[in-house]
């Protein structure tokens, strides 16, 4: 399911990233690779603050929709 559907405070594992290439590369540098554990910390109008590998990332809704996760 897309990351946008993950409830607040819940964790899941990243399955696939469907973002365009340069964005995907950037996300990989930030630790968002398939297999990584991701937790939703806060939500604001569809934009998310997530926790990945000990750091906090802000994502716009568009990106969150392209990240597929598995609980």
């Amino acid at each position: 399911m897309p990351l946008t559907m993950l409830p607040l405070g819940k964790s899941a594992v990243i399955n696939v990233c469907r973002a365009k290439e340069p964005t995907r590369k950037f996300l990989e540098g930030l630790g968002m690779v398939p297999g990584a554990l991701i937790t939703v910390i806060s939500e604001n109008g569809g934009n998310l603050i997530v926790s990945v590998k000990d750091s906090r990332l802000a994502l716009s809704k568009g990106i969150a929709q392209q990240l597929l996760v598995q609980m």
């Binding site: 964005t23 950037f26 996300l27 930030l30 990332l57 802000a58 568009g62």
Partner: peptide, 10 residues
């Protein structure tokens, strides 16, 4: 506009 991804420092 480009999608928004940014690290938030503590």
């Amino acid at each position: 506009a480009e999608a928004f991804v940014m690290e938030l420092p503590p």
